[in-house]
């Protein structure tokens, strides 16, 4: 295998094999991948990251495929991360988003990658942030991130994307009511897809009322509401225009710097949490006191908070855990 450095250099020259391999290594938490990312990270931060989220069956993948086509027509290169769920039972996954995107499979300016959540719960996969940084450093102008089909509370995409597109469809009925407290609040651009179906006008009225009654700060971005029929390509150009209008707003107001800072903080803390808990859990498993504490909790001699505090005390007192 190539060294991490050689892989990173090749990826920076937009070698697809190398970029794809680094994403794989990162997804597998392989140290070569982490080393390659260290070389790539300084070159990231230039791409426009566009998130697409919405409930299952809303037509996200079809819409993403049309977005790829529209962006390519504007001479922009596109990296795509399409997320599908990992089975909690087997750890396996069927990743089928790209079925809708295969017309772009032979386009050198489009790189499509399917990712399984691998236990991550926020609508993205365990290493979507890392993969996005790789595509960004490779020089793709736009990174499109399609979340898993979401319900109310899977909002991690907001931390990653400059612009979040929330896709709704007619016919979900009370589903829309349920979404109001969740993903509908975070859309920079709202899309009613399959808007040729019955119920589209009613859905548009509901979303319109919701957006109009939202508290609105002076000078803040006012979310757009658009209609598409992705299958027929209708409304896609307007959607791209709407996304770029939001991007221009971010740039004009300096908000893009805050997005970048928030993203850096979010993923730094997330990785820190993972590393800290992995280290402490490894200590707990390797330490007889850890097993004893777990037994105490099971036998109700100690409550879980007290046991956790006792374990952390032991971790801090152990000379081997000090570096």
């Amino acid at each position: 295998m190539k060294s991490a450095r050689a892989l990173a250099d090749a990826a920076l020259a937009r070698d697809i094999l190398a970029g794809a391999r680094i994403i794989r290594l990162l997804d597998d938490r392989d140290e070569h991948g982490i080393e390659a990312l260290a070389h790539l990270y300084p070159s990231s931060g230039r791409a426009y990251v566009l998130g697409v989220t919405g409930p299952p069956g809303a037509g996200k993948s079809t819409l993403v495929s049309k977005l790829i086509g529209a962006l390519r027509k504007r001479d922009l290169t596109v990296g795509v991360l399409a997320i599908d769920p990992t089975s909690p039972f087997s750890g396996g996954a069927i990743l089928g988003d790209r079925v809708r995107m295969q017309e772009h499979a032979t386009d050198e300016g489009a790189f499509i990658r399917s990712m399984a959540t691998r236990g991550q719960l926020g609508g993205l996969s365990r290493s979507t942030f890392e993969a996005s940084a790789v595509l960004d450093a490779m020089g793709f102008d736009v990174v499109l991130v399609e979340t898993v089909g979401v319900g109310q509370d899977e909002l991690d995409v907001v931390e990653l994307a400059h612009t979040t597109v929330v896709v709704s469809v007619p016919g979900l009925g009370d589903g829309i009511q349920a979404m109001k407290a969740g993903i509908l609040e975070v859309g920079d651009v709202h899309v009613i897809n399959k808007s040729d179906l019955p119920g589209a006008d009613e859905l548009e009225r509901q979303l319109h009322v919701m957006l109009e009654t939202e508290a609105h700060r002076e000078g803040a971005w006012k979310p757009r509401l658009l209609r598409t029929v992705a299958e027929k390509g209708e409304g896609v150009e307007e959607l791209v225009d709407g996304c770029f209008a939001h991007r221009e707003h971010l740039q004009a107001t300096g908000e893009d710097e805050r997005v970048a800072a928030r993203r850096a903080e979010h993923f730094f803390l997330e990785i820190l949490r993972d590393e800290v808990s992995a280290r402490i859990l490894a200590f707990a498993r390797g330490d007889a006191a850890g097993a004893a504490l777990l037994e105490d909790v099971r036998a109700r001699r100690r409550d879980p908070y007290a046991a956790a505090a006792a374990l952390l005390d032991a971790f801090e007192a152990n000379p081997q855990t000090k570096r």
Binding site: I16, L17, A20, T86, S87, F89, S90, G91, G92, A93, I94, L95, G96, R98, V99, R100, Q102, A105, T106, F111, I112, R113, S114, A116
Partner: peptide, 25 residues
């Protein structure tokens, strides 16, 4: 999938070129 593998399905009517590019990406 049930054996714990990640399966990428790319749909119908694929050309060898599409399959090779997909496998690499």
């Amino acid at each position: 999938r049930d054996a714990g593998m990640e399966v990428i399905y790319s749909g119908l009517r694929q050309t060898p070129e599409m399959v090779a590019n997909t496998a690499i990406q």
